[in-house]
Design a protein around this nucleic acid. Structure first.
Lengths: 129, 129
DNA sequence: ATCGATGCAAACGCTTTGCACTCTT
DNA sequence: AAGAGTGCAAAGCGTTTGCATCGAT
């Protein structure tokens, strides 16, 4: 499903995610977008996010048992998830070529992507106890 | 929540996951366990799986937008998820020490775990088109 | 004017939970 | 006998979808 019409709703959704550093989920995007387009519905937020992901303008960040979050940072990167506060941090560090490593071993498989997700305690949570 | 009573339901749930190579989700476990304990309910399957995870007898495998799957293989390992058929494969390959790598860079963070998830096309799906 | 996008509300799938009852300990 | 575990059904939550209407092209 390609975006063929650039409505104010989709522009607003994209702006909100781009302007956020917190990897917002659909509900947070909804709240923020309402300030720009008060009449927007949650369904439209979901449809817009999906379209923007398909178009390659956003990526999804999944956290076990939580709502899908969205990230406007398109370069390949990992995420750190704080198990205490739930916050998600970008990990902008060059990692080894895992796809190459695994491709060599998984004969006949088409390995396209490696997603890396770190877990632990963030700086703030670690220091506040 | 520790398991303080080993009921036949929990034993059956653990046996089913241990005896499966397909990383079953709660519904699949439910279907299989019914052959052993016909009266079991889905709620009990969920509670048993949760307890077994807490106790360290099972781990969870999450696939974006899909039901949580369970894995009785306890050693640290990655997973390969086929984007075509949805099947999940264990990746039993020694990977670089990502936690150490990232710990050195994320000053003040307590990095405990790195989860690695490969995506692409499995052997069967790749060869059938 | 077309037909993709929207708003609304209902429905969905997975999971959790309240309650009375059961059965391991 | 105590209270953790069970079965059942209802509810919860994130997400999707049907439909009539709106509006970008």
């Amino acid at each position: 499903m390609a975006i063929v019409r650039f409505t104010k709703q989709r522009q607003a959704v994209l702006e909100v995610v781009r302007g956020s550093t917190e990897h917002p989920d659909a509900a947070h995007v909804f709240d923020a977008v309402k300030q720009i387009v008060p009449s927007i519905s949650l369904g439209t937020v979901y449809r817009s996010l999906e379209a923007l992901v398909q178009e390659g303008h956003l990526i999804q960040v999944q956290q076990p048992g939580q709502a899908t979050r969205y990230d406007a940072r398109l370069e390949d990167h990992a995420h750190f998830m704080c198990d205490a506060c739930g916050e998600v941090f970008d990990v902008l560090i060059e990692l080894p070529d895992l796809v190459g490593l695994v491709s060599a071993k998984l004969e006949g498989f088409g390995v396209k992507e490696a997603r890396v997700e770190f877990h632990g305690t963030c700086r703030r949570c670690k220091h506040s106890n």
